[in-house]
Design a binder for these strands. Structure first.
Lengths: 229, 229
DNA sequence: ACCTGAACACCGTTCAAGT
DNA sequence: ACCTGAACACCGTTCAAGT
C-alpha cells in the first residue's frame, strides 16, 4: 500500500552533539519549576529536550547525578550582597533573605538542596560569608558555627513549610476547608487557637513578612547580648 | 510428575478480619522507621503484614490516605507538659522539644507531617497550647501567631536537616569525604569556613544541643522585649 | 465483607544495536 | 562518540474473581 510518512512521526533522530550537560540542566530546572518534583522524570526530561529517553544517559550517570548538578547550579545563583561597610547584622539578614528567595523561587528543587547543602563554589562562599559575619558580630567560634546552622535550618524549614502550603492551597477548595475546620473547632477546648485563627491564616499568607519576622527574632536572640530577661 | 507442595508456599490465605486499620498503621510506621520513606511501598507494607498487596485497599482508599493516617497517629503521640505554674517560656521550650523529639524519632514520617500539620486532635492541642503560652508571655495577637509559625518552621527545618544528615552520614565513607573536602578548601578564599570547620562538624554532630541552641536564641529574640541592640 | 492474582500504566536503568 | 528502542524489575492502582 502506498502510505505517506506516518502523520505523527515519532521523532526524527536528534542531530549529533545537539545535546549537552547545560541544555539538560536547563530543561531539568524548567521542568521542576513548572510541573513540580513528582513530574521530574527521566522520560519527561527527555521529552522536554525532544530526545530519546536514553540520550540523557550519555551525559549523566543517572537521575541522582542530574539532581546533584541541579542543586549545585541553583546554589551558584545566590547573589551575595557587596561586602559592605555596614553592620554585620544587616548583611547577615541580606544573605539569609537571598538564600530564602532562592529556595522559594525554585520550590521543587528545595528538597534536592537540603540533602547535600555543601555543594558548589558559590554555596561555599555563602557559608563562608555567613560565618565571617557572625564572628564579626561578636560570637565566639562555637556560637558562630551553631548560629550558622540554626539560621540555615530556619531558612530551609520556612521555605519548605511555605512551598508545601502554597502547593496545597492551589488545590481547589483547600483554603475553604481549612477555614471551615478552624471555625468548627470547639472554642472551649482550644480557646487560643480559635481566637487567633484569623491571625494564623494571615501569617501563612504573608510569607515573606512571616519569614522576616522569624529571621529578625533569631538574629536578635543570637546576636543580641546573652540570654535576655 | 509427583510433586510435593511447593517448598515455599507462596502464602496461605489470610484469615478473615485478621487485618484492620490499626494493624496496617502499626506496620506502616514500623516500615517507615526501619527502612526509610523510599521503602514505604504498598507491596512492602502488605508483605510486612503477611497479606496480599490488595488486602490493604479494603481498609484504606490508597497510599495517600495511609500517609495521612500515619501523620495523624504520630502527632497524637506528642505529650504536652503538665500545664504548669511555671513561666511560659520554659513551658514553650518543653512543647517545642517534644515536637522536635517526635520528628527525629520518626524521621521517615517527617515529610508526611510537614504537608498537613493541622491534623489530629493532639496536634491541634499542641498548637493551642503554644499560642496560649505565647500570649501569656506577653505577645500581641499578630506576634503570637507569627511566633508560633516561626517556631514550627525552625523545628521542622532542624529535624529535617538533622535526619537527612544522619542518613547521609550512615553511608560508608561520607564522613571522611566531607572532612577531606573541608580540608582541601583554599584557606585564603574561604578563611572563616576553613577556620571554623571543626566547630561546624561538631555542631552537626551534637544535634540536640544544636537544636536547643537555636531554640533558645529564637525564644530570646521573640519573647525578650523588642529589638535588642 | 474481605482478600486474592492478573493486568495496566507508569518509573529508572541495562543492554545491544544503530549512526 | 552519541543517540536509539526493547526489555527488565520495580511502582500504585483498577478490575474481575474467589471465599
Amino acid at each position: 500500500m502506498s502510505v505517506t510518512q506516518p502523520v505523527r512521526s515519532p521523532r526524527r533522530r536528534a542531530p549529533r552533539n545537539s545535546l549537552n550537560a547545560d541544555r539538560i540542566l536547563d530543561a531539568a530546572i524548567a521542568l521542576l519549576d513548572r510541573d513540580g518534583a513528582e513530574a521530574f522524570t527521566m522520560r519527561a526530561l527527555a521529552q522536554e529536550l525532544g530526545v530519546g529517553t536514553m540520550a540523557v544517559y550519555s551525559h549523566f550517570r543517572g537521575k541522582d547525578e542530574i539532581s546533584d548538578a541541579v542543586a549545585q547550579r541553583l546554589m551558584d545563583t545566590i547573589e551575595l550582597p557587596r561586602t559592605g561597610t555596614g553592620d554585620p547584622r544587616g548583611e547577615l539578614r541580606e544573605v539569609c533573605r537571598g538564600v530564602y528567595r532562592l529556595f522559594t523561587e525554585h520550590p521543587s528543587a528545595l528538597q534536592l538542596l537540603t540533602i547535600r547543602p555543601l555543594r558548589g563554589d558559590d554555596a561555599i562562599a555563602v557559608i563562608d560569608r555567613m560565618l565571617d559575619l557572625l564572628r564579626r558580630a561578636g560570637l565566639d567560634r562555637t556560637a558562630a558555627a551553631r548560629a550558622h546552622v540554626a539560621l540555615m535550618q530556619y531558612t530551609v524549614g520556612s521555605a519548605l513549610w511555605n512551598t508545601r502550603r502554597a502547593r496545597a492551597l492551589c488545590e481547589e477548595g483547600v483554603r475553604d476547608r481549612v477555614r471551615a475546620k478552624l471555625d468548627a473547632l470547639p472554642a472551649d477546648r482550644y480557646p487560643a487557637l480559635v481566637s487567633l485563627a484569623p491571625e494564623l491564616l494571615c501569617a501563612q499568607d504573608q510569607r515573606t513578612e512571616q519569614y522576616e519576622f522569624g529571621l529578625d527574632g533569631i538574629l536578635d536572640g543570637l546576636l543580641g547580648g546573652g540570654r535576655g530577661l
